[in-house]
Each structure stands twice: as structure tokens, then as C-alpha cells.
Simulated scan of single mutants.
Amino acid sequence: MEELAERYSDSLRIKIDSRKEEMLTDDNSHYLVYRVLGIATEEGRLIDEYQNTGRFLYKYVGSFLEEAASLCLKFKNVEGGKILVENNQGQRPKTFEIDFLDGNNAIEIKWRDATTDGDHITKEHTRVKAIQSHGHIPIRVMFYYPQRTQAIRIQETLKTIYTGVKGEYYGGEEAWEYIKNYSGYDLKEILTKIANKRTPEDGSK
């Protein structure tokens, strides 16, 4: 797990450094409008920098947690893994991806789902029905709840959808406990130890 974390960390750092280098030659004429709204040039530069690097961070966090959780599940069942199933409930998309299929358990792994788009509910409902129709049990494992009220409501609706088809939904602490109980590996404890080695929790150097 430490090797996995190191690989993702190195790759993320390369992406961030590369983007910062690119930004040195960006057209910053839009800072005029920032200043009109009371954002000084240096503050605007920092906002742009964090916004750009933040996109990489969120992407890598999601990919890392999915792979880390899948690794725990893989130790339980080396035959399990990622597969595609046909969408027999609609035209788009043609297939749905299952992050980890273990027997009939179709486990979807999310680090966080902050969407506030109502269409997301329709798509997820279609996805769950399609997975169920293939004889699998849809299971959603999401490690962190979103912060915004509308996004939280959507997650509550998704939980109802999963339970409505005899599936399972685990969010927040329940997600960590699910991985621990299912695989025998305490992923949260493992990641906490790695995090404490790499950077103190209080953010000090």
C-alpha cells in the first residue's frame, strides 16, 4: 500500500509541477475582472493556481482510493476485479463499469460524490437496475459524504434506490467499516499510518 501511495504521490507532484510551469506563460488578462471584483492580482494568481492543481488532486485522490480499496478486496478474492456490463435498461451509455465484482457482489467505490445534478439520479438508477438485471447485487461504497445540502439529498435518494433493489449503500464511516469487515483489512488505519509518515495531521513541516 505504501508503494501504491508513493507511486500516486510522485505522479501527482509531476502533474502539479508541470501545470504550474505552464501557467507561467498563461494569458492573465482576465485578472482585470478579478481586480474589478476586489481580488488583487497576486490573490487571483494563487486562486488560479490552486484551482488548477486542485483538479489534479481530486482526480488522483479518487483513483488512489479506488485502487487501494480494490487491493484490499483483491486480497480477499484474487479472482475478483473490474468488469463491464451491458446497459440493457437504456441506450446511453452502452456499458456500465463495476469497480470490483466478487461473486455476485458488484462493488462501486467512490471517494466522494459531490454532484448536484438531478440527471445523476436517473443515470445511477439505470446503472443499478442494469447491474441487478445481470444477476449482481449493486453495492455502493463512498468514503466521504459531500458538504452541500443538495448533494447530500442526492446521496440520500441514491441510498433509497440501492435499498429498493435489495442492494447495499455504505457512506462515510460505514464505508471504511465495510471494507474492513469484508476484506479483513483496516484500510483507514493503513492510510492513517502512511499519512502520518508523510505529513503531520496539523499541517506542520
Rank of each mutant, 00 (worst) to 15 (best):
G90I: 00
F64Y: 08
S133G: 08
T126M: 10
E67S: 03
G62N: 02
I194P: 03
Y145S: 15
V61S: 01
E21M: 06
I190G: 00
G44W: 00
A69C: 09
W176K: 03
T41Q: 08
S63Y: 14
V128A: 13
V33A: 11
Q132V: 04
E174L: 05
Q91G: 06
P200W: 03
I139Q: 01
K20L: 12
Y145W: 14
T199H: 09
K76D: 03
S183N: 05
T122A: 14
K123M: 12
K205L: 00
G62A: 01
N105G: 01
K123C: 14
L158N: 02
D102H: 03
L101A: 03
Q150M: 05
G184C: 07
E66M: 03
T149H: 14
R45D: 06
L57G: 05
K76G: 01
Q150W: 08
L37V: 02
N88Y: 09
H136W: 13
F75Y: 15
F56H: 03
L65P: 12
G118R: 15
T41C: 05
K76N: 10
K159A: 13
N196D: 15
T199W: 05
Q155I: 05
R112F: 07
K59C: 08
K166E: 14
I83D: 03
E86N: 15
G118W: 10
T160H: 10
N196C: 08
N181F: 02
G167C: 01
E124Q: 11
E2T: 14
G203T: 04
Y60K: 08
K15C: 09
E6M: 14
K74F: 11
I179L: 10
F143C: 04
L12V: 03
E173W: 04
I139G: 02
N28S: 15
L46F: 12
L191S: 04
L71V: 07
W111N: 05
G38C: 02
R35I: 03
R148T: 07
T116P: 02
P146A: 06
E79S: 13
G171I: 09
E49N: 08
E124M: 12
T115V: 03
G171F: 06
L73Y: 04
S11L: 14
E42K: 10
A5E: 11
K110F: 11
Y31H: 12
R35P: 01
G172F: 00
E174K: 00
A69T: 02
V36I: 09
E189H: 13
S63G: 06
V128M: 14
Y169R: 07
L73D: 03
V128T: 13
N105F: 07
D17I: 02
D26Q: 00
I14V: 09
L191R: 14
I139S: 02
H134V: 13
N87S: 11
D17F: 11
G203W: 05
S9Y: 01
V85Q: 09
P146T: 02
F100D: 13
M1Y: 07
R7G: 07
T116N: 05
E173C: 05
D102C: 11
L71E: 12
K188M: 15
D113R: 11
G172Q: 00
V61C: 01
D117I: 04
K166Y: 09
T126H: 05
G171P: 02
F75C: 10
K180M: 12
Q147V: 15
T122E: 14
